[in-house]
């Protein structure tokens, strides 16, 4: 009886797992076979890389990859600098008005940037940053979530280390750089993984503020490439899709534990 329930558990879990990755498996199947073999699910048909070649030639993918890479890098650097400074101020300094400002920052957690697309678009245009990578990244740099995360990390640093560094003659920024930042490394790593995978995948905002292949990230490029008006067939779309998710997917499969830990750390504050 007990072994039966155990078997049923394994069976159900594995069945659900197969259902869950089947969209990816089918895409892989379609991308590596000719269109007619793919849609007929002809199991013994020959494998081919032709779809990848056609897809790669169909759009400036290299440019898109570089744009996405630049975008996540710019955002990450901006976030690290801004949230480190602000998180440190909130965690370790006493100054009038601090609590009110902190509540304002927390409020931003609930006003999703996605909701403010119209006014943010106007702001980016006003700043002359329309269709630039900086313009795509800027609204995300002062992340309230990141400030909160850094504040929590810095609060956990023992005050003795702070005092010791001060007695050694370290200035405030020196203390931040030499004591707090190194001790918060795990938080930085977690934050980096969450930030990179969020912005690698972001679509709506880049769609609005980019207007040329020079700045367009992968997601926007993929959506244009796959648009029905372009009449691209399913095997080639699958190849393009797999191509554009490959870097993040491979990184995830290798560093799975770190990814899951990062999302957990970021979620449970």
């Amino acid at each position: 009886m007990k072994s039966l329930t155990k078997f049923m558990d394994s069976f159900g879990a594995i069945l659900l797992a197969i259902i869950w990755i089947s969209p990816l498996l089918f895409a892989f199947w379609a991308a590596t076979h000719s269109t007619s073999d793919a849609v007929n699910l002809n199991l013994f048909s020959p494998w081919t890389l032709e779809n990848f070649r056609v897809a790669w030639a169909g759009a400036p993918w290299l440019k898109y990859f570089i744009n996405t890479f630049m975008l996540v890098t710019v955002i990450l650097i901006g976030q690290f600098v801004l949230t480190t400074l602000a998180g440190f101020a909130f965690a370790q300094l006493q100054f009038p008005g601090k609590d009110y400002v902190f509540i304002l920052v927390l409020m931003q957690l609930f006003i999703l940037p996605e909701v403010l697309i119209v006014e943010n678009y106007a702001m980016i245009s006003r700043l002359g940053l329309f269709d630039t990578i900086l313009g795509v990244g800027m609204p995300y740099m002062a992340s309230a979530f990141g400030i909160f995360l850094m504040r929590q990390a810095f609060k956990g640093v023992p005050i003795e280390l702070h005092e010791a560094a001060r007695i050694e003659g370290c200035g405030l920024l020196g203390i931040l750089w030499r004591v707090y930042v190194p001790l918060a490394k795990p938080t930085y790593l977690a934050y980096a993984l969450v930030s990179v995978s969020t912005h690698w995948n972001n679509f709506l905002w880049p769609l609005i503020v980019t207007n040329s292949p020079e700045t367009r990230p992968l997601t926007v490029g993929l959506s244009i490439f796959g648009a029905p008006e372009n009449g691209v067939d399913i095997s080639i779309i699958s190849a393009a899709t797999l191509m554009s998710v490959a870097p993040l997917l491979i990184a995830f499969l290798i560093f799975q534990r770190q990814f899951v830990q990062a999302f957990l750390r970021a979620g449970i504050k």
Binding site: N201, N202, F203, T219, V245
Partner: peptide
């Protein structure tokens, strides 16, 4: 699926 973009 969590690490895939919604577009993909």
């Amino acid at each position: 699926p969590t690490v895939l973009p919604m577009i993909a």
